[in-house]
Design a protein around this nucleic acid. Structure first.
Lengths: 144, 144
DNA sequence: GCTATTATCGCAATTCGTTCGCAATAAGGA
DNA sequence: TCCTTATTGCGAACGAATTGCGATAATAGC
């Protein structure tokens, strides 16, 4: 299996774009965070490593990461989008607590079957899915 | 089954809030749109009916509608959130074309089973879900 | 029904995430 | 190595969402 940097370089080359250290720093930061992240977290992480990178560059790199299939939008919260890297770990199901915001990740094979079935019915070439299940976690539900 | 206005009035009363024409206009507009909507669409619809209502009021009413379970956030697109009414029609699965943006709604009973199963495993009181399947629709996939 | 209290409204100003314009820089082909 | 031009960083601009405030109107008490 190719590393994420290799996948990214290939993508950049195929699109006729330029390989820059800034873009690769973003890719590395994205895969250093083994959790959901937002633009600001990437920015803080990179700055903490004494990397000189602007937020504009991060914002400009996000669409490339999305298009190359390395990351996906996970959810919208606190006024902005949160992402997650998906290359290598296909955890695209989330269980969210509506009270405390806690998020548990899980994978569910059955959803793959749903993908296939729905794709056939509506004539879609399906490439992925996101499932979000929400409710009240063990701690929060006792107060209900 | 209670009408959406009745559900809303009950919710307002239980919270000790006031029943106002503005809030009820928003509820009616939300259920007049049988599709996804955003704040601006609500605003335009209400203005077109010669209703005098401000966007601030719409923004202030949205959290009430979410909390009362009448609507839910559907997806984030074009820089802002889109909602859908869910009371009465549980179509919380979407099939989205990544190329043209076309959205098809469907319901899938299996996801209910997943809800239940995941709720047990992680000790959650599950109240709902959103499933988004994406890919390329019939028209768009031929160009690939 | 009338009045007092105070939640809610509309408006305008503000906040904050994201994008854009532009000059300086540097990647990559000749 | 030079030249072209994509990419960067900065700060201004943009737009969605929120908030402060005076005016208004919905409920409770009389």
């Amino acid at each position: 299996m190719k590393s994420e940097i290799e996948v990214f370089r290939e993508f950049i080359r195929n699109k006729g774009l330029r390989k820059t250290p800034e873009r690769e720093q973003v890719v590395r930061a994205v895969f250093a965070i083994h959790d959901h992240f937002d633009v600001d977290e990437l920015y803080v992480l990179l700055r903490g490593q004494n990397e000189r990178i602007s937020k504009a560059t991060i914002y400009r790199t996000i669409p490339l990461l999305l298009e190359s299939g390395l990351i996906q939008e996970a959810y919208f919260e606190d006024g902005h989008l949160h992402y997650e890297h998906i290359y290598g770990h296909e955890h695209n199901c989330h269980l969210r607590c509506l009270d405390c915001g806690k998020v548990v990740e899980f994978t569910e094979e059955i959803v793959k079957d749903v993908e296939e079935k729905v794709g056939e019915i509506y004539d879609f070439l399906v490439t992925g899915h996101k499932l979000e299940v929400y409710g009240h976690c063990g701690k929060c539900k006792v107060h209900k």
